[in-house]
Computed example of a mutant assay.
Amino acid sequence: MKALGFGKFSLLGWSDGGITALIAAAKNPHLISKMVVWGSNAFVSQQDLKLYNAVRDVSKWSARMRQPMEEVYGAQIFAKTWEAWVDGIAQFAKRPEGSICLELLPLISCPTLIIHGEKDPMVPSFHPQCLLKHIKGSRLHLMPEGKHNLHLRYADEFNRLVEDFLGH
């Protein structure tokens, strides 16, 4: 963003992209105006490891969930990449408190909107609660029917929330 000439900007991050946004906002508070994260976590718990291992084998996924990724990456590459992701994210569980960026959350000073789908199978509700607790002045919006891809499934509501938050 600096190379593009932006002095200040807002961040939106989903899932691992949300983790990236959290880290960027903590390390560059003077650059970030506002931030929206969804489907994101700052640590990996033993419960998370069980969830990740349960979806490790993509051949057991429904065709609806698997097909878009296989179309982009090819079936074999997607399967190998996903297994590598599970192996990679699991490494954080070995760190104190399973931290990915837990210790950085208090450094975030920009207004932050956390959106969470209450039916998210990948990110249990204790994760957005943790973000809310540790990011000063953050707020949480729960979507009762939302899952991990709530920005796609409920695009109109999601876009309205984000536009209202960024516009004020």
Rank of each mutant, 00 (worst) to 15 (best):
M1D: 08
K2P: 00
K2Q: 12
G5H: 01
F9L: 01
F9W: 03
L12D: 01
L12C: 01
L12T: 05
W14F: 11
W14R: 13
S15F: 02
G18F: 04
T20W: 13
L22Y: 07
L22T: 06
I23A: 00
A24N: 09
A24M: 13
A25D: 02
A25K: 02
A26I: 02
A26V: 00
H30K: 14
H30F: 12
L31T: 02
K34V: 01
K34C: 01
W38M: 11
W38P: 07
N41Y: 09
N41W: 11
S45F: 00
Q47F: 11
D48Y: 04
L49M: 09
K50Q: 15
Y52K: 05
Y52D: 11
Y52M: 12
R56I: 03
D57Q: 12
V58N: 08
V58M: 04
S59F: 07
A63H: 11
R64E: 15
R66M: 04
Q67G: 12
Q67T: 14
P68G: 06
M69A: 11
V72E: 08
G74V: 05
G74N: 04
A75Q: 14
I77K: 15
K80D: 15
K80H: 14
K80N: 14
K80S: 15
T81Y: 10
W82E: 07
E83C: 06
E83S: 10
A84S: 12
A84T: 13
D87Y: 13
G88I: 03
A90T: 14
Q91K: 14
Q91L: 12
F92V: 05
A93W: 05
A93G: 04
P96Y: 08
G98W: 07
I100P: 12
L102D: 02
E103I: 10
E103N: 13
L104V: 01
P106L: 03
I108S: 00
S109F: 05
C110I: 03
P111F: 01
T112N: 03
I115T: 05
I115D: 02
I115F: 04
H116S: 10
E118V: 10
M122V: 13
P124N: 09
P124W: 07
F126K: 10
L131W: 07
L131T: 02
L132V: 00
K133M: 07
K133Q: 14
H134T: 06
H134D: 11
I135L: 05
L140E: 05
L140N: 04
P144I: 03
G146M: 06
A155L: 13
D156M: 07
F158V: 08
N159E: 12
N159Y: 11
L161F: 08
V162R: 01
D164A: 07
L166A: 00
G167I: 00
G167S: 04
